[in-house]
Structures are given as C-alpha cells and as structure tokens.
Write a protein that binds this DNA or RNA. Structure first.
Lengths: 224, 224
DNA sequence: TCCCCGATGCGCATCCTGGTCGTCGAAGAC
DNA sequence: GTCTTCGACGACCAGGATGCGCATCGGGGA
C-alpha cells in the first residue's frame, strides 16, 4: 500500500510518516497544498492523509481538485476543527474518513488499514488461498497453520498481490505500490522479492500460489 | 492494441514505452512532432500518447492535423500545464483524455485500457463467447470454467479478436495491432498464432470459436 | 545481524521461420 | 447438374535463436 501524507507541521508529519513506514507502508510526504496536489497527481496512492489547514492550497480545495480528476485514492482528512458543518463539508468534498486532532497514532493506523481494504473491495480482513492465510489486520501470514515471518518489503509485495488476487500484475504495478519516490525502477528488485516470497510461502515446484505469466507479470491464486 | 508514444524527454518516454510493452501492448515511439505525425499516418494506432510541448511540431498542431485527416486513434494528451484553458483547448482539439505531469505510470495504464475499450465499443471488462470467458482487466482466460494459460503474444491476438468480435479480421489487421515496427510482415506468424490459440481454446473440429474466412481472414464468435 | 538491492550467468519458455501437407473452391468438360 | 482438375490458400510441424525469468552472490546500510 502506498500512502501520501500532506501535513505542514513537521513534527506531526514526521511522526506519522515514520509510524506508517514502520507498519510497512510506502510513504511519501508533502509540506503544503500545492506540493501535495502535484504528488497526488504523480502517483496512484491508495490512501492520502490530508490536513485541512495548509499553506498555499487548503486541503478541501485540494480534495475537490482530486475528485474532479477522478483520483481513486481514499482520503482521510485531518483537522483541528470538529463541528458538524466541517464534517459535512469534508465528506461532501469526497473524503472517505475524518480524524480530529489530537489523535493517537493507533487510530490513524486502524483507519488507514480499513480504507486500504475497502479500496480493493475486500470485506474480509483475511485472505485465504489454498492453505495460505494472510491476515491483513494482524499483518501475519501462515501456511498450513504454521506462521511465516516476512520482512516488511516482502509483506508489502504479498499484500499487493492479495489485493489483486487472480489478476495478472505487471512488475511496474508492483513497483508503483511498494516503492516510494526514492528509487528507480531499472532493476530486478521485484523479481528478487517474488523469489524471496516463493521461497517462504510457495516452495514447491512448479509454484502453485504465485504463478509467472512470462512477458506479462505474476498472478496470485487463480488455480490450474 | 498498438500504441504510439510521442514524447521528447527520453527517460520519460523510455519508462512509458517499457511499461506499456510489459503490459502486453505493441508500442512505437517518436521523439518530436514531425516524427510523431509521420508515424501516426503510417499506422492505424489504437491509442496515441501525445506530449504537448514538442520540438519541431507541437502536440496540439499535430492533433489538429490528425483530426483533419480523420485519424481514428484515441489520443491521450500529456502536459505539464493544468489550467482550465489548457484543458479545454486540448479536448476541443479532439483529444480523448488528458493527463497532467507528473503522473504515475499506473494512471497511464488505466486510461489507456479505458480508451482502448471505449474505442471498440466495449462496456464490459469481460468478453463471453459460448463457454469461453476473457477477462480484459485480469488478463485471464477460462473455457468452461477451467483457466487457460496463454503466452503474451497469444493473449494479444485473442484480445484483438475479442475487440472485433463478430467482424472479419484480416491477417494484416491482426499483424498491425499485435506487432510494432521491429518486425516484418513477410511470414505466416499470424496463422501460427491462430493455430496456437485454437489448440488451447478451440480444439474441436470444425473450429467453433475462431472461424476461418478463406481469402479474407478470421472471425471470433458469430455463430452459424 | 538482518534486510535490501544491483549485477551476472544459466536454462528454458516463447517466438519465429521455412517447409510440407491438406483442403477448399473455381472453372471447365461432359 | 455433376465430375474432374488445378491453383491457391491455410494448417501444422519442427528446429533454432532469442531474450526473459530465476537463483545467487556480494556490497552497503540500518
């Protein structure tokens, strides 16, 4: 899952970004409204955390712009104000959820998880494929009942594959959702991580869970 | 689907071309407006990705020329500017969609898919013919419920046949939409791939799904 | 230490070519 | 109308080149 944080107060922004990264998300941040808009347009973020009071371009205007362009991200508004009028205005503008400052980081995490899941039309917090179980809330993976430890990046790749289970996913798409802006897509990292994952959860030959579509990408699940 | 990318900034161009190829499209590229116009006139592209700021001939002029010649391609404009005036000018010139830089690759892919589908008048993301099902989003194929693995090229041919289901399609047309400039049409590749497809999805004799129209081409579906 | 990521080389699926065989259809003879 | 003949077109096969995917190694960073 890839997340954008638009917040102008550096300590808060830093705290949120760090917390989300620790939770295994790919996170970018923007310090004002204009930067936020540009970033949002540049990337298919799954979730955008958006402060309302921002320099240059306020959060609600930004949200309006995004929705006008049919941006698919789920938006979580962060605000100091909490009146019914504010709340209505935010949700009317196309926000998916609403969080009033001050809030606990736990709260952020919970809502982000919920939104990310909703975004891919998954009701269940648990994805089951064959004897593999991925718990998207607990962020745990078991195969045939035995728990499997994944690194943050490994989990991120698996999570994205789960979100699009049964669909052919190109390397580029995986890249887009697992990496932030820091790196360049001119390498075989994705292959490498598919390899790691297979070694841990899909050791048999031929691979039954993560199937290769030569020249196209990978598919998770989808039997036969 | 065959796509032309007209973009003068090499890194961006390369990234887009590579990504689209990975997604199974036949892609050519042009580095300036004149080259772009020449390529567009030389080939029945389904989609053209067109930068506005270009050397020699700018994107809007190019677009005007194409529309004057009734070129059928769907055009996706790429631009750094994003004012209402720009947007209106682009769409008035006959563009089908509009993408503001910087953008994520996945955004490009989504819009290209949407345009390609619209272009062939398909609402559904899934094509069903008899007991054959082709999911154009998931890029999966099933016959009588059983999934069928196709290679990238096999899928590309089938996708094009789906797009023109019920119509007679010549070899040349298939070739045009499945291959880029790299190869020459002086062979029987298309026949060969029709053969591959039939073996996988249409094994019965006589072939019910992919019918031969001697001296003309092939038809997908269209009973009797 | 564990995780992350770029690079290299090998093996194989995929792709294409060229050739041969089978088949369809038109035209002509009866 | 029917049968025959011939030409052309399409189907299928198999060998070989290509390039993709995968495993692995090793350096760098947290």
């Amino acid at each position: 899952m890839r997340i954008l944080v638009v917040e102008d107060f550096p300590p808060l922004s830093r705290a949120i970004v760090q917390g989300l990264q620790e939770a295994g998300y790919a996170v970018d941040s923007a310090g004002d409204g204009e930067e936020g808009l540009a970033s949002a347009q540049a990337c298919p973020y799954d979730v955008i955390l958006l402060d309302i009071m921002l320099p240059k371009l306020d959060g609600l205007s930004l949200l309006h712009q995004l929705r006008k362009q049919h941006h698919p991200a789920a938006v979580l508004l962060l605000t100091a104000k909490d009146t019914v009028a504010d709340r209505v205005m935010g949700l009317d503008a196309g926000a998916d959820d609403y969080l009033v400052k001050p809030f606990a980081f736990e709260e952020v995490l919970a809502r982000v998880r919920a939104m990310a899941r909703r975004r891919y039309g998954q009701r269940e917090a648990q994805v089951v494929i064959d004897d593999l179980e991925v718990d998207l809330v607990a962020r745990t993976v078991t195969r045939a009942g035995r728990p499997i430890a994944l690194s943050a990046r490994e989990y991120a790749v698996l999570e994205y594959l789960c979100a699009r289970r049964g669909h052919v996913v190109t390397r580029m798409e995986i890249w887009d959702h697992v990496y932030d802006f820091a790196t360049e897509p001119s390498s075989n990292v994705v292959d490498v991580y598919i390899g790691y994952l297979r070694r841990k959860i899909d050791a048999d030959h031929p691979h039954k869970l993560i199937r290769t579509r030569r020249g196209q990408g990978y598919v998770l699940g989808e039997p036969e």
